[in-house]
């Protein structure tokens, strides 16, 4: 390792520490008794978290907490549901009613919560493998029904927790632990899948674009209906290092160079290719009655009920 390179790595580590300081090193000697603005929202007895250095999930969670506090919600009425995987651990760190369910099934679980108590704001926070691979059927059907859920899908193109296997979002040619010769399957474009299935709000941001990401989360939280925020996020351990991005910072640099902000872009042409640009922005923002509204209106007519 060259001295130059060692220096760069140290800088990277510092950067990562700074990014995540509020999450995992709040109580060391430097921080002292100071409380962090996000303390209220985190289960400090669950920290430190399990995520690798350079992972984007800390940023995604930071943006999420920012959005929750700014979205004018009664936080006692917020429920966070996760599936399985690194992103699935979010439900365990956030200090709200939170449910860590089975692999792929966060959306139907959240559907039950929301339909049984429409006063709840229900957010599904999970990964690409969980939501659109093993859980793909639920993802498209919840979007079709327009259940009032906010889906935050952190897409790192692989199964990180279990050692970097390929999934349905893995780009063509990508090397993973289960595609050692390259990936020969066509991947899902998560945002396109949601839009085609009926989502009323679809946005995609990388974790580099934290302000925009937080704003997108606020919009999604406030949008009635099935809304999706797709977060493109580094997984240096499972994915990046196999593609010339040894660290999370390398991936952030890639986002900086290749992130192309195009609001209203044709989401179906915004697929992600290895080495290609990442089109990001707000793709869909339309109004459609939610499942419960549609149902209530239909039943009022059918059963001759007064409008409630």
């Amino acid at each position: 390792m060259s001295p130059r390179r060692g220096l760069r790595q140290a800088t990277y580590r510092q950067r990562v520490m700074r990014q995540q300081m509020h999450l995992d090193v709040r109580h060391d000697a430097v921080a002292g008794d100071e409380t962090h603005p996000m303390d209220e929202m985190l289960r400090e007895d669950r920290l430190p978290h399990i995520w690798c250095p350079g992972c984007g999930l800390g940023i995604a969670l930071g943006c999420f907490i920012g959005a929750l506090t700014k979205a004018d919600l009664d936080l006692d009425k917020v429920a966070v549901v996760s599936g399985i995987g690194c992103t699935g651990r979010v439900a365990g760190y956030i200090k709200l009613d939170s449910f860590h369910t089975t692999h792929g099934r966060a959306i139907p679980f959240a559907t039950g919560l929301k339909l049984a108590n429409p006063e709840l704001s229900v957010i599904v926070f999970s990964g690409d493998g969980d939501l659109v691979t093993i859980g793909g059927n639920h993802f498209i059907h919840a979007a079709r029904r327009n259940v009032d859920l906010t889906i935050i899908c952190v897409n790192n193109f692989n199964y990180g927790m279990t050692g970097g296997q390929a999934g349905s979002t893995t780009p063509i040619d990508a090397r993973t632990s289960t595609t050692p010769y390259g990936n020969f399957e066509y991947p899902f474009n998560v945002s396109s899948l949601a839009a085609a299935s009926g989502a009323v709000y679809v946005a995609r941001w990388t974790v580099l674009h934290v302000r925009r990401l937080e704003n997108a989360m606020i919009e999604a939280l406030q949008k009635p209906g099935f809304s999706l925020v797709e977060i493109i996020s580094p997984c240096p351990t499972g994915f990046g290092r196999r593609h010339g991005e040894r660290t999370g910072l390398d991936t952030m640099r890639y986002y900086h160079k290749h992130g192309v902000i195009t609001h209203g872009a044709n989401v179906h042409e915004a697929g992600i290719k290895l080495g290609g640009d990442i089109v990001e922005g707000k793709f869909v923002d339309v109004d459609r009655p939610t499942f419960l509204q549609f149902r209530e209106d239909g039943l009022s007519k059918a059963l001759g009920r007064n409008d409630k």
């Binding site: 099934r105 139907p108 959240a110 039950g112 929301k114 339909l115 049984a116 108590n117 059927n137």
Partner: peptide, 15 residues
């Protein structure tokens, strides 16, 4: 799969 999960979610919402 969804059916079973949805009732579990609903039960956690109190019904």
């Amino acid at each position: 799969l969804a059916s079973m999960n949805t009732i579990v979610g609903a039960a956690w919402a109190g019904v």
